[in-house]
Design a protein around this nucleic acid. Sequence first.
DNA 1: TTGTAGGCGTTATCAC
DNA 2: GTGATAACGCCTACAA
Lengths: 339, 339
Amino acid sequence: MVTIYDIAKKANVSAMTVSKVINNTGRISEKTRTKVRLVMEELNYVPNQMARGLVLQQTNILFLLITDITNSFYTTLARGAEDAAKKHGYRLLFGNSDENLIKESEYVDTILGTRVDGVLFSPAGDRSLPNLENLRMHKVPFVLLDREVPGIECDVVLGDSKEGARQLVEHMIAYQHNLIALINGSLEVSSARLRQQGYLDAHKLNDLLVREDYMLELSYEAHSDLTTIENWLKALSPQPTAIVAGNNVLAVEAIRAILNCGLRVPEDISVACFDDLGAISEITPFLTVVAQQAYQFGYMGVQLLIERIQERENVKPWKKIILPVELKVRKSVKQVMVE
Amino acid sequence: MVTIYDIAKKANVSAMTVSKVINNTGRISEKTRTKVRLVMEELNYVPNQMARGLVLQQTNILFLLITDITNSFYTTLARGAEDAAKKHGYRLLFGNSDENLIKESEYVDTILGTRVDGVLFSPAGDRSLPNLENLRMHKVPFVLLDREVPGIECDVVLGDSKEGARQLVEHMIAYQHNLIALINGSLEVSSARLRQQGYLDAHKLNDLLVREDYMLELSYEAHSDLTTIENWLKALSPQPTAIVAGNNVLAVEAIRAILNCGLRVPEDISVACFDDLGAISEITPFLTVVAQQAYQFGYMGVQLLIERIQERENVKPWKKIILPVELKVRKSVKQVMVE
DNA sequence: TTGTAGGCGTTATCAC
DNA sequence: GTGATAACGCCTACAA
């Protein structure tokens, strides 16, 4: 491993001089500067960030923890975070918790151990609280993405979940549906609660009866537990004519379950959901969705985070950004014929 | 920041004793062990991995660099790598190069600086060579994923690109197509070359004429340069009845371009490609693809990497794993009516 | 069983 | 302009 001492020896200067050349600090004559630079090139020197981080107490690295690397919402978000981080001169590292609290806490350990400068955190749910408190206790700045966690105050970037769910339901209603079910993520996740609230609000506003058994609580993560959905569907009487899904993963599972039951979408049951699918939506525009500005989640999250890192002690009030949603009407919702 | 010295002071022992408790090394009495553990809990101690890495010269961290975090092939691969890394007690960090050599080399700098133990590397293309040589020069073990790079010897996990392309073309031929075009990634990427080779082989084997202007060389990355495809398509005479795309991103772009031209898929032009799309394929099984075992790429890649890390100097021969492909016939290819 | 000394690679401070 | 010294937090080797 090449160190500044190797450089120093070969360039006939002290290690300190090398360090100064590297960091452009202090006064160095142009002659020694180029000499040192040459030797660095020659020896392929790369500064050891661990040693650097040790003394500087900062790494210039941001960490992004997402809950499902397989979901295009989060990968698009990641692209946004990446671009913003780059713009501000930070490196970005990713982690994937898989909606799993254990994995999440392992990542928090990595984060704490690695001493990254800040974290963009998409929490698995309300029970992520200890993990966040852990971060807070160790004074690691973080910004929550997509989900809030009761009990912790911080900067956060959210989508307008309640409004989105309301739009989804009202879209169904506009198409003459009045038996509208909800397949949702765990109610231990803030967005799921808000989406349920939006679902309920829309019912109330339109004088529609809410049936308790029409609301199925699952998990946002892909677990392919299709039989649960199938059994739930079969047990419902009357059968809903429409299903709103809490996110795209659940929508896909719902549709698979519907097909497994020998029914069709949208002929027999209409489906719409939160979050768009990937590029495929553009060529087979099938699923009607409430799209979120995924890229912006990441981009703005990084901005909030960097502000927070740079102000440090300067206790600004926490910011909450709520990004608007957009209904994209496609083909998975059928107009019900009124007899 | 809590250090082992803080623990030591509070527990009335030396820092060394604390270190031994943390690492389960040396002989420590049960009494002091629990005493130290208690204080660690109380003070919420987290070992500083930078300091640790500095002296140990290893981090227990693996790095996965992918070229397109937005492509489900790579995210599924990432899940596989994650699971394998976890199984072996390593942490996994991700990076996304976006098929961009500059970003790639920046990540290499991060990798080098961070002193991770090993790297899973999906190179942007042949011109990634300097980046790989950089890794090699610094003795960082790495495994190439999905693409080879001429000029560097190393472990590698590949898909059977040539065979897959051949199957794609022969599928078209079986459906009576004989005007089959190819939209491919840059020929500076090994997989694109092999896919072109498979395309050519299939033509030869079936006594089909190869038209130079039927082969369009673009980039695997999503750049939405639709007009290029549109203009190319319009200039072709006779117009192809089928298009094979080098990957899923290109297929989506091809289809969009076709639609923009006022044509339909598959009625006017059939399309099939390499790599499956995400979960959506299961509910709207539209695009005919040659699917790769994405998860296995990551999983096996980590296994190769860890073997390499642990053997270190023990110069085993390089391994090349070629994963088989699977044709999934769906609806984007039309049977041509033979007059 | 526990503690001391030295060093991993870097930088801040201050003297020359 | 340049360099010696100490420190960042931890671990190995050795001593007590």
